Simulated assay, not measured.
Amino acid sequence: MKLGLHLSIAGGVDKAVDRAVELGADTLQIFAKSPRNWQGRQLKSAEIATFKTKLAEAEINPLIVHVNYLSNLATPKEELYRKSKAAISADLQRAELLGADYLVLHPGNHTGSGTEAGLARINQALEQLVAENETGVKLLLENVAGAGTELGVNFKELAAMVSGIPTAEIGLCLDTCHAFGAGYNLSTKEGIQRLLAEIDEDFALDRLEVVHINDSKGELGSNKDRHFHIGQGEIGYSGFKELLKLLPDSVKALILETPIDEAGDDELNLQTLQDLADEVI
C-alpha cells in the first residue's frame, strides 16, 4: 500500500502534485474544489493536462478526491438533498477529468428525521448517483465519529446505505480517528482485530480500499472528530504499528489528514508513518 496525504489545491491543482513530490508521497488526496462552496470554477484543459502529466511523471497513484463539507445525503430537506446529489455528481465528473481513482464522501446527518429515514435517503441517493454517472471513479463511504445525528458510525449503517447497489460500485474508506471516536479501540491489537472483523461481517473487508490514517486527540468513544499527529494521540505508535500489520491487501492507500500546527508537521507525520511501515515490513 502507498503512503500519502491530503494537500491543498490553492494556486492550482498541479501545485498539490509538486508538494507531494517534495514530501516524498506516492499517493495523494485533494478536494476538487473549495470544500466550503457548492460551486467550483471550471477547470481549464491546460491545467488538467499539466496535473495529469505531473501525476504520471511522479508515479503518484491512486488519486483520491474528497467531496465538499456541505453535502448531506441524509437530510429530510428536499432542496438540500437535491443540491447535495448535484454537488456529488459534479465532483464525480470533476474527479474523472482529473484522472482520479476514488471519490470519498461523508454520508450525512439525518438532523432529526431518524436513523432509518436517513439511511434510506442515502441509499436512494447513492443508487441514483451510480446509475447516472458512469465515470470509472469509485465512490468510497467514510465512517464517522458519531457526533450529533451523523450516520455511518458503524459498518451496519454503512452497509445499509449501499444495500442493493453492486459491490463493485461503492467501497469503504476507514478513518482511524473517526473509528476511535466511535468506540473502536485502535490502540490495541484486540481492538483492531475487532474492527476488521466487524467490517468483514457487515460490509466485506475486501471493499476497504483507502485508510485516512490519523491519531485522535479525543478519547475513546468520545464521538469527537479531532485529528492529531501520528503517535501523539490516544491511538499511539503501538496502535498504528499493529494496524499496519493487520490491514488487508485490498487497501491501496494510506492518507494522512493530520493537522498542521507548525511548519514541518506534514513532513514529520509522513516520515513517522513511513518509519512505522518500514518496521512492520
Rank of each mutant, 00 (worst) to 15 (best):
E142T: 12
L151I: 13
N143A: 11
A160Y: 05
K138I: 13
L129T: 09
K156T: 07
M161D: 10
M161G: 11
T149G: 03
K156C: 06
V144C: 00
L139I: 15
S163C: 04
L140C: 07
L129R: 05
G136D: 05
S163T: 09
L129E: 13
E150H: 02
E132T: 15
M161C: 12
A160Q: 14
V130Y: 00
A145G: 08
L140T: 10
G136A: 05
L158M: 14
G146D: 06
E132Y: 13
L140N: 14
T149Y: 11
E150M: 07
N143I: 04
L139K: 11
E132K: 11
A159I: 02
L151H: 09
A145R: 02
A147N: 00
G146K: 05
A159E: 01
N143F: 01
M161S: 05
L129S: 02
V162W: 13
V137A: 06
T149M: 04
V130K: 14
A131V: 06
A147K: 06
V130L: 13
N133E: 03
L158I: 10
T135N: 13
G146W: 03
L158G: 02
E142M: 09
A145D: 01
V162E: 00
A159P: 12
L139C: 08
V137T: 09
E150K: 03
E132W: 10
A160L: 05
A159F: 03
N143W: 06
V144M: 11
L158P: 06
A131W: 01
N154D: 11
L158S: 10
E132P: 04
S163I: 12
A147C: 01
T149W: 00
E150V: 05
E142P: 09
L151F: 01
E142Y: 13
T135Q: 06
G136K: 12
S163F: 03
G148D: 08
L140V: 15
E132H: 12
V137Y: 11
E150A: 14
V130E: 05
L141G: 04
L140R: 14
M161P: 13
K138R: 14
L151S: 07
L129W: 13
L141M: 15
L158R: 12
G148E: 12
N133Y: 09
G146N: 00
A145T: 03
G148T: 07
F155E: 08
L141T: 06
K138F: 06
S163G: 02
E142R: 11
L151Y: 03
V137S: 11
S163D: 10
L158D: 02
V137K: 14
V153Y: 06
N133R: 14
G152M: 03
V137H: 10
M161V: 08
E132A: 12
G136H: 14
L141E: 14
E132I: 08
T135G: 13
L151D: 04
L151G: 06
N154E: 09
G152D: 00
M161Y: 08
